[in-house]
């Protein structure tokens, strides 16, 4: 059974991966934690860019909203950071509704430019200390660590399990989402918007929904980031962050969950591996990206066709019912 073999392979890979913190030093565990957060961000952006085909170069804005929601409510009102996970998703989601609704009808490159603008507006608003709660350029410090039943998540090793558990849950949920009416509707949008609307799909609704679900997850990733760093500032949410997430999606393979994980490993992990090359590493990195886009436009691990188990009697002639 190929299916059984896949399950065994995945389980084994998970066990090996989960044991990594016992063999790696703190520095590399921390690198894996970064990769984990970028994986979650890439998975969320993948819904928007990979599945719905909407170019979003401002994803860091949703990430920032989540992180600042966590920081402000935790430091200001003492609400436990873990309990704020849904709130962070919620604020990022509401923000997505507000900004995406007026721009959702824009196509391709136009939407892309506007999202860049949104990302920058959020960053600059944070620097300018809007509403007097963001702490300006210095940001917010003293954010609490997550704790559950008296156990506090502190060391990078603890965070490794926290972050990757969240990433694992995200992978499972998004896998189900992909293989559903919702996931298909996003693909119809990407393939041909006119045909999608003409087949009875409410395209405006699904574009917005893609943005909102993606933003909710990025907001929760922001919460995790805030609790991991205990200090956040606008510097962490620059345009470059959005570009990194976008690059992971495109390089890894649009619409493919394994692609997002691999992409995060390559784009976040490789520069760490090649630290000794110092400045040359960005050159190599850039060259690799260019080569990829020329020789493998669909990404490293492109999305596979969905397979459906068909009903037995599918070969017979029958009416439309």
């Amino acid at each position: 059974m190929t299916n059984q073999r896949t399950i065994i392979t995945i389980s084994l890979a998970n066990v090996v991966f989960a044991s990594l913190p016992f063999f790696l030093n703190t520095y590399w565990v921390d690198v894996l934690n970064s990769i984990g957060i970028y994986s979650i961000l890439a998975l969320s952006l993948n819904l928007i860019v990979g599945h719905a085909g909407l170019f979003n170069l401002g994803h860091a804005a949703f990430y920032a909203i989540g992180a600042y929601t966590a920081a402000i409510l935790n430091t200001g009102y003492g609400i436990p950071i873990l309990a704020l996970l849904p709130a962070c998703g919620f604020t990022a989601g509401v923000f997505a509704v507000l900004i995406a609704r007026p721009i959702i009808h824009l196509r391709g490159d136009y939407l892309c430019i506007v999202t860049i603008g949104v990302g920058e507006i959020v960053r600059i608003a944070l620097i300018n200390d809007v509403f007097g709660v963001t702490g300006g350029a210095n940001g917010i410090f003293g954010i609490a660590r997550p704790s559950l039943f008296g156990f506090s998540v502190r060391s990078p090793q603890h965070f490794f399990y926290y972050i990757w558990t969240f990433a694992g849950i995200t992978v499972c949920l998004f896998h189900l989402l992909e293989n559903s009416r919702f996931g298909r509707a996003l693909n119809y949008l990407r393939e041909d918007e006119v045909a999608a609307e003409g087949s009875g799909v409410d395209t405006a609704h699904y574009k917005l929904a893609a943005f909102v679900v993606g933003a909710v997850w990025a907001g929760m990733a922001g919460n995790i980031y805030a609790s991991k760093m205990t200090i956040i500032s606008p510097e962490s949410f620059t345009f470059w962050e959005s570009v990194l997430m976008f690059a992971i999606v495109i390089l890894g393979g649009s619409g493919s969950i394994p692609g997002m994980l691999l992409g995060a490993f390559l784009i976040v992990g490789l520069p760490e591996l090649f630290r000794e090359f110092a400045n040359a590493r960005m050159l190599v990195f850039g060259a690799a990206m260019i080569a990829m886009m020329i020789f493998r436009t669909q990404g490293i691990l492109p999305a596979k066709q969905r397979r459906y188990s068909l009903p037995e009697s599918s070969g017979e002639e029958s009416g439309t019912g």
């Binding site: 298909r184 693909n187 119809y188 393939e191 041909d192 006119v194 045909a195 999608a196 003409g198 066709q305 969905r306 459906y308 068909l310």
Partner: peptide
Amino acid sequence: IRLFQNLTVLE
């Protein structure tokens, strides 16, 4: 023709 070219016939 405006099919969803990269999706399956069933989809």
